[in-house]
């Protein structure tokens, strides 16, 4: 593939291509089992975002052997393994090293049809954009780091981050998907922006239709916005036109870096209702049509209240 995408694709035969990705990071929640689950859900997401089926995985772990109890690593790996089982992916090996800072993730190999995978390019005039998970995990993780989040919020955000994008990907398999990506570190605007170059289209997002965890709004107004959100804003602000009715907090939500965020689909207007119906029926209950694509060579993101 000539453009940057969610995972690497290598054609083996006319009806089979290999799809590969790798991702690992430092803990975002205190519970080691939950961290393992989130790390795996996050890494598998790149394969789901391309319409592929993940098959095998390998663990990657960096562990501070001298300062941390080894049972921590065991619990992280258990969390990851349970998530892999849920995804019907076989763990076939792994590698760990000693490091001063704990890190965990996996490499993933999967299959996809070489003519049928979804790229993040292909927006078409009139398309509708559908997002499958709520935004706000970067801000809420910052609040957790600051000791400001309640147990109930930690529980909710853990559930959102550790839920697989598998059902969303499978629900859309029979649909004509023009473009798809998963929302992670660059935030909604950053990943949206990556879909646009060369499309000859701009997009109009409706803020009120975008699923957002309500605690994220509360924490952002308290100043618990991660540095990544500011970096994302600095980088992409030039291509966004915000309605004056949207304040700094709402804007930050759209730049907030997500951990294991949802899938963002672009489908034709006539397919949008059916696509949303399928996603909701598959249990992706936060799914929502968040905006539309229109022909415009300025390739801008317009955000309405």
């Amino acid at each position: 593939m000539e453009k940057a995408d969610d995972a690497g694709v290598y054609k083996i035969s006319d009806d089979l291509a290999l799809i590969q990705t790798v991702d690992f990071f430092t803990p975002i929640v205190d519970d080691p089992y939950a961290f393992g689950q989130i790390a795996v859900a996050n890494a598998l997401s790149d394969v789901y975002a391309m319409g592929g089926v993940p098959k095998t995985a390998m663990n990657l772990a960096a562990f501070p052997v001298k300062t941390m109890d080894f049972s921590m690593l065991r619990q992280i790996i258990e969390g990851g393994l349970d998530k892999l089982k849920e995804a019907d992916v076989a763990l076939v090996g792994g590698h760990s090293i000693e490091d001063t800072e704990l890190k965990f993730g996996i490499s993933v190999t999967g299959f996809v049809h070489p003519d049928k995978f979804w790229t993040n390019h292909g927006l078409k005039d009139g398309d509708r954009l559908i997002l499958t998970k709520p935004l706000g995990s970067g801000i809420i993780n910052t609040a957790i780091k600051g000791g400001m989040a309640s147990e109930a919020i930690i529980h909710d955000i853990t559930r959102v981050m550790s839920s697989l994008n598998r059902s969303a990907s499978e629900a859309m398999r029979e649909m004509l998907v023009h473009a798809c990506t998963d929302i992670t570190g660059f935030g909604l605007i950053g990943h949206m922006a990556e879909m646009m170059p060369g499309s000859g289209c701009s997009v109009k997002l409706q803020f009120s239709s975008i699923p957002v965890m309500k605690e994220a709004i509360e924490f952002a107004s308290m100043g618990l916005v991660p540095a990544g959100a500011f970096k994302n804003r600095e980088f992409r602000e030039c291509m966004v036109e915000f309605s004056e009715k949207l304040g700094p907090v709402e804007r930050d939500i759209l730049f907030d870096p997500q951990t294991s965020g949802g899938l963002l689909f672009s489908v034709s207007e006539k397919d949008a209702d059916l696509a949303l119906e399928k996603l909701l029926a598959a249990g992706c209950s936060d799914s929502s049509v968040i905006g539309e694509v229109f022909s415009d060579t300025s390739e801008k993101i317009i955000v309405k209240p």
């Binding site: 952002a220 107004s221 308290m222 100043g223 618990l224 916005v225 500011f230 700094p248």
Partner: peptide, 9 residues
């Protein structure tokens, strides 16, 4: 920005 916002909130 964050500290200013925290103060106002």
């Amino acid at each position: 920005e964050n500290v200013s916002r925290a103060a106002v909130s």
